[in-house]
């Protein structure tokens, strides 16, 4: 059985002069899963991707792909979309996709048919012969997407692929990525749009100042890493909750309250105390959003 196509980063460290851009970065991108790569500007997301692609050499640590080293053949099988977009402005759209496909090792005929199919797919089938700079920015972005997919990559690394896209294009790209993931391709993409990451991603890696502060399944991170918070609505007024020992009341607004239980606290006990006080209209756990987790993680 062939080794599972997993991308593993272990202890990656990279310094630029006195600045440590990446500090012992380790995480995994698994096949068939969309992994969101989250971090503030300058956190080291782009550098991490460049290390995986061999553009930047790490000072320490290893990158392994499918159990082996990342050699030239492996790199040519990766699909990459740099944060700073760019193709040849004066070259016709199809010609440059074919050129890139060939650079990735495809025979010309295969590169051509793949490029044509992708252009059709992103709605630019009729613009194949036009110069790139004659296209609108949005359409240029679509060509960029096609460029990262032209060689049917076995791993996708996309740096801010959604930035600058309108909602329709976001949906289309998300569809493309899900489709690739469904075929078993590991997909790593960075984004500032945390709601989008939350919506799309199976896994999340949070980077802060060059360090991984959280990584794992998005659902696990949301339930496991956050404190136990509940929203409680009682009649007529929730003010009495302030008297309950061991309970942290974060917010009270008339009948509604946001409370935090201690780790060993029992929400059933809380329910009974509330019922003793009056009718309970609502009691539900509050799962933090990714944005909240992110803010806590990088604080």
């Amino acid at each position: 059985m062939s080794p599972s196509p997993v991308l593993e980063l272990t202890g990656i460290t990279r310094r630029f002069g006195d600045v440590t851009a990446l500090d012992d970065v380790s995480f995994t991108v698994s096949p068939g899963r969309l992994t969101g790569f989250v971090g503030a500007n300058g956190a080291g997301k782009t550098t991490t991707m460049r290390v995986v692609l061999g553009i930047t050499r790490p000072d320490a640590g290893t990158v392994r792909w499918a159990g082996g080293e990342v050699d030239l053949a492996a790199r040519q099988s990766f699909g990459y979309m740099p944060e700073e977009r760019g193709l040849y402005p004066k070259m016709p759209v199809l010609a440059q996709l074919v050129f890139l496909g060939q650079l990735y090792g495809l025979p010309e005929a295969v590169a051509r048919s793949s490029a044509l199919e992708l252009l059709e797919r992103v709605g630019l089938g009729d613009r194949a012969g036009d110069r790139l700079d004659s296209l609108s920015l949005g359409n240029q972005q679509r060509v960029q997407v096609a460029a990262s997919l032209v060689h049917d990559p076995v791993l996708l690394l996309l740096d801010e692929p959604f930035s600058g896209l309108d909602p329709v294009a976001v949906d289309a790209l998300a569809g493309l990525l899900r489709e690739r993931a469904a075929r078993g391709v590991p997909v790593l993409f960075s984004s500032h749009q945390l709601e989008l990451v939350e919506q799309l991603c199976d896994d999340v890696v949070i980077l802060d100042h060059g360090r991984v502060v959280a990584a794992g399944r998005a659902s696990d991170l949301r339930t496991a890493s956050a404190p136990r918070r509940y929203r409680l609505v009682v009649e007529p007024d929730a003010g009495f909750l302030r008297e309950v020992p061991g309970l942290t009341v974060l917010d009270v607004d008339g009948p509604a309250a946001l409370v935090e239980l201690p780790d060993d606290g029992d929400e059933q006990l809380l329910l009974r105390r509330a019922l003793a006080h009056g009718p309970v209209r609502e009691l539900r756990p509050v799962v933090p959003t990714l944005a909240q987790i992110f803010r806590e993680a990088v604080r």
């Binding site: 599972s4 196509p5 068939g32 060939q102 090792g105 076995v154």
Partner: peptide, 12 residues
């Protein structure tokens, strides 16, 4: 989903 095994093209 069948985990795609990395298609090994010879390096250019």
């Amino acid at each position: 989903a069948a985990a795609a095994s990395p298609a090994r093209r010879p390096a250019l």
